[in-house]
Design a protein around this nucleic acid. Structure first.
Lengths: 143, 143
DNA sequence: AATCCTGTTACAATAAATGTTGCAAGTTAC
DNA sequence: GTAACTTGCAACATTTATTGTAACAGGATT
């Protein structure tokens, strides 16, 4: 399959809404920045709204962060857009009559959960505010 | 795309080789345990051999772990089969003329590298021996 | 010599992602 | 109040990384 960049695009949307809050915040404008199409942006925004990270108004291009960027973590965005999607994936079709095939799924589930937890702890430690500040610093450094 | 279970299948192969070392270790026998096809198993085994985790002999069904299972980590297997594949993926096509689009790739690269490192540290802490022991314990608990 | 095996390649099929299109319904400006 | 925008949602097409399948040269075993 293709690799997902929902998380990247989701962060992009939230950062855009924060940085350009006094400019055009239509899905078309944001899509131009992501170089994606407005429909995808609206799909992602709908998920961010549902997860309580963003507010929006039907009919009006007026999205806003639902809470301060410092209180939104990368993990919040990940879970909003990817749900409980695991980073690593079990092979769910193994031969149950084999010692290995019959038990490895359970064993790997434990191991993968540990990896997932480590990754999520790190994602929780990264805030949207940190990313926005980094973006603005990089922009300032260009001039 | 499909989700990759190369890592799961790779661990499966290594565990199988260790547990069934006195039985049939042909790619067909291992494939039957994974419920995959022998060609896939041979492809994965070739990568494990190249990475120095497994030994094999052309023409003879005689694979063996290249070093003790306690000295093979989940990270070793991951890197053998997935190379340097990142768990999270940047959107590489953003508008460089936008403050967000022009800088977010670099910002997210840093953030994602931190997440990757946390996940890899956890993978490094999980040994093949640990997984094999867990498999054998689960099997024993069935009776 | 016959039969199995590995190692490798090329191509087909599958599945999860994004792209595209269309439209009902809300909002704003005039 | 109507024209021109917007969001929100759904259906379908396209893309692409994966696994599946088939074929075959060459080594190993009996």
């Amino acid at each position: 399959m293709k690799y997902s960049h929902k998380l990247s695009d989701g962060v992009h949307i939230l950062a855009y809404v924060d940085i350009y809050q006094d400019a055009d915040l239509s899905s078309g404008a944001i899509a131009a920045s992501i170089e994606a199409n407005p429909s995808l942006v609206r799909r992602l925004m709908a998920q961010l709204v549902k997860a309580g990270l963003l507010t929006s108004q039907p009919g009006a291009a007026a999205p806003a962060l639902a809470r301060p960027a410092a209180e939104i973590s990368l993990l919040d965005v990940y879970q909003a857009l990817e749900g409980n999607k695991e980073l690593l994936h079990i092979d769910e079709k193994t031969n149950p009559q084999c010692i290995v095939g019959g038990n490895i799924q359970a064993s790997l589930n434990v191991a993968y959960a540990q990896v997932q937890q480590a990754a999520e702890a790190q994602m929780a430690a990264i805030s949207l505010q940190g990313i926005i500040s980094d973006i603005l610093q990089r922009e300032a450094a260009k001039h």
